[in-house]
Amino acid sequence: MKAVFHLIRGDMRQIYRDPMLFISMVGPILLILLVRFIVPFVTAHFAIESYNVLLASFFILLIPLLLGVMTGFIMLDERDDKMIDYFAVTPLSKIGYLIYRLLFPGVLTIFYGIVFVEWASPESLAALDTLLVIVMLAMEAPIICLCLVALAANKIEGLALSKGVGLVVFVPFIIYFVPLPWQLVGSILPTYWTANLFLVGDISFGMLLIIGILGIFIHILYIVFLSKQFLRKID
């Protein structure tokens, strides 16, 4: 517990010193404001309001991407500077460190995700849809972060990966433009399921449940696999 407290205190100091963390809090807010006020204005201007939902499903994915990448960069720096070795020999332990780090973008994503869906999104979602979207979204930030730190050996590779991983936010466009069954290729990506909830339109309760369960299952699979990979890497 005390170890966690020290980590939080260290983070507070870092937020003060490293304004990027501050930006990671402001960034999603700007994004939400953009979707609420600017996107409807622009689509109305070009008479493409029908794309509003597509754009919403795209922009909401930017929240976990931004927070995940940012946390990934912190962890890459910490690993390159051998800080993780240091945490590993404190009562916090390596797993404790990992959970603590991943909670940060996860929790923030839940908060911003709710604001986004309830206030900014042009299309309102039903209660169950919202719940499923938020749960998956909350797992996506850690997944993106884990992708960087589990697959990259250092910060340069992390940067390169962040370029590649960032492309997953374009999955909504696949769902929108690529017909079934071809679009199912995208279903191995977590973001496919989140975007699907926005884009499938009216479906039966049973279908919704299937999408929800499959989606959450895939998200968990990614987290477990990548976490293992990461822990093996810092052994």
């Binding site: 990966l161 492309l167 374009f170 466009f173």
Partner: peptide
């Protein structure tokens, strides 16, 4: 060796496909 070229093959491909759409 750090994968910059590999990632840019992917990114370039993505842009090519996107531009056609």
């Amino acid at each position: 060796r750090h994968g910059l070229y590999a990632v840019y093959i992917l990114v370039s491909l993505f842009y090519i496909i996107a531009l056609y759409q």
